[in-house]
Amino acid sequence: MKRDDAKKLSDEALEELAAQLAAGKSEELTKFLKTMSRFHNYSFGNCMLIARQMPTATRVAGFRAWQKLNRQVRKGEKGICILAPLVGKKKAEDGSSESEVFGFRAVHVFDVSQTDGKELPDIHKIEGDPGEKLSRLHTTAIGLGITLSYEEDLGGADGISQGGSIVLLSGLTAAAEFNTLAHELAHELLHRGEDRKTLSKTVKELEAESVAYVVSTAAGLTGALEQSADYIHCHAGDSEQLARSLQRIQKTASLLLEQLEAVPLEPLSEVA
């Protein structure tokens, strides 16, 4: 597959996703968000390409990269086409040079299911328990300058975002608290500027629920999007608004997932 073909495939996937939402169907969005949760380091466009070509993919790498992991791509397997940046050096006026992306090329990767060889460690599965990632998410919130507190009654809500502070319902399970905190952090990161006024409540909830789903799924939790069906139909076929939201979701989820791996582990009692 050539670069232009890959770009066309990505655009077609976005249009189909918008049409599915306009028809009141959320399966395609859920499929895409699952892909995003597995490949949060990939760009929005490449997530689209992977979801379009192999929605069941869980871990992808190039032919030689798999060999370095003591696995071999099976003969006859068809690669998944993604776009890789072409990076070069550009000289600045002061004589220094800096890296710059000047184009993209089509490359092919393969899912682990297309390979044979040495077993790989499962880096995400936590059997419905976020484990130490809950503490790390607390630390991430505090590192972003957001205060956390707990209340016995939030009027039916599990969490509330108040612009610089998040209140969580006391007594939630670890999985529910993790997912709720990810949702409220998404509001803090996405909806405290001008977007607070310009985006509808439904769009904001879709974005927050989707970020929480991606982060929670990557942390090994299940069922994070089951209660979100009412928000998923919000774009009514508007592919441009949908693309903007998906890019924002991908960027925010990636930020939180990167922080989960980067922040030091603190005891929950100290963080709280």
Rank of each mutant, 00 (worst) to 15 (best):
H108N: 04
A51K: 03
L246W: 01
D238V: 07
E93V: 04
K118L: 02
S254F: 08
H233C: 01
K204E: 14
R105F: 05
S26Y: 02
S161E: 07
A262L: 07
A236C: 09
G88Y: 12
I146M: 05
S216W: 04
G79Y: 12
T202C: 08
F178R: 03
S216C: 09
A22H: 05
E77G: 02
R59T: 08
T30P: 00
A175N: 11
G103A: 07
S26M: 01
Y42E: 14
A22N: 15
A157V: 00
E132S: 11
S170D: 15
I123M: 08
T58I: 07
E194W: 08
F102P: 10
Q114H: 05
R3Q: 14
D153L: 04
P264K: 00
L268S: 00
R59Y: 11
L181G: 12
T173E: 13
K201R: 13
T198Y: 04
R3M: 10
D195N: 12
L49D: 04
D230F: 03
K75D: 06
N179K: 14
A253I: 07
G237V: 06
A157I: 00
V167P: 06
Q72F: 10
N179Q: 15
K78F: 11
Q53E: 11
I123P: 06
H138R: 14
H138F: 10
Y213L: 08
G62R: 12
Y42P: 06
L185H: 05
L255D: 10
R71Y: 05
L225T: 03
A61T: 13
L29N: 09
P85T: 01
F44R: 03
E240A: 13
S10V: 08
L221C: 09
L83D: 06
S245W: 10
F102W: 04
L33I: 00
W66R: 11
Q227C: 00
S161Q: 02
L144S: 11
K31W: 09
G24M: 09
L172K: 04
Q162S: 15
Y231G: 00
G103N: 06
